[in-house]
Amino acid sequence: MFAYIVRRALQSVLVMASVAFVAFALFQYMGDPINQMVAQDATLEQRNALRSVLGLDRPFYVQFLFFLKNLITGNFGFSFRVGTPVAQIIAERLPATLELVIVAAMFALFIGVPAGVYTGLHRHGALSRFMLTVSLIGVSLPTFLIGILLILIFAVLLGWLPSFGRGDVVNIGFWSTGFLTKSGLKALILPAITLGLFQTTLIMRLVRSEMLEVLRADYIKFARARGLTNRAVNFGHALKNTLVPVITIAGLQIGGLIAFAIITETVFQWPGMGFLFITAIQFVDIPVMSTYLVLVALFFVIINLVVDLLYFAVDPRLRVERSVSAH
């Protein structure tokens, strides 16, 4: 198992290096950054001087190694637009996005899994049919449309919830949280639902189809034949066997939540990383864009690593190797 973790970690490093290369390539192909740094009337000599000061005249692989070194040491460069360190800008925006994603993921898991179990167990029930129909909406409607519809209903027509922003935040060290104020919590509801709705319906449908599959298994029939209670059979035996595929998809989806937060954050003017990224694109703020890219990739890699480790917790068949089965 240790060897497995090491192998996975090495793979992760490789993935991160590839993403870093793409992020680095952004600088190379998004026009000449020198143009954006110097005055319009700068001479060619002035430009070349700046170029060699910044090391931009060296071969690209040397530049890439410098870029990697900077990434690893947490030096992400300065924003072209505002001139402050990118690390600082991201650190300001990160809590907003992570809080939104965590709430959306909780929403997706705590609604999606029970709804999936229910619809799997009561296949022909009226409530199941209703939930499946509603879930079709969640799967098929685009995020921005759902967000706008929610704003229309709950912010504009009913006036219950704010239509944009994070509300009041409290700073705990560098972390600004919206969990501790009433307006912060209220502001979270609509964006979290918007962001998590697709994942909720996806997880629900996945759990449902896995449940239907597992409930047909011999060991479920045998568990019933042993006289176990419905609760033990459905939740102890059936649900646990659906977990491996559900963990896989749910893990990927949480990574997806971070990436898709861009749309939700734009619709709700949520001051998170996604919103920052959109602004960065508008201003061709390459250091911010490439850092965002690397950071999102890092989240994906970490989540995937956690998912792989969760497999071991759930499925004993992966754990063995050492104790060889005796016949």
Binding site: A217, D218, Y219, K221, F222, A223, A225, R226, H237, K240, N241, V314, D315, P316, R317
Partner: peptide, 14 residues
């Protein structure tokens, strides 16, 4: 009590 055909699938693998 009951014993079914396939012992490979009668027990919950987890």
């Amino acid at each position: 009590g009951a014993v079914f055909q396939d012992p490979l699938t009668s027990l919950n693998p987890l």
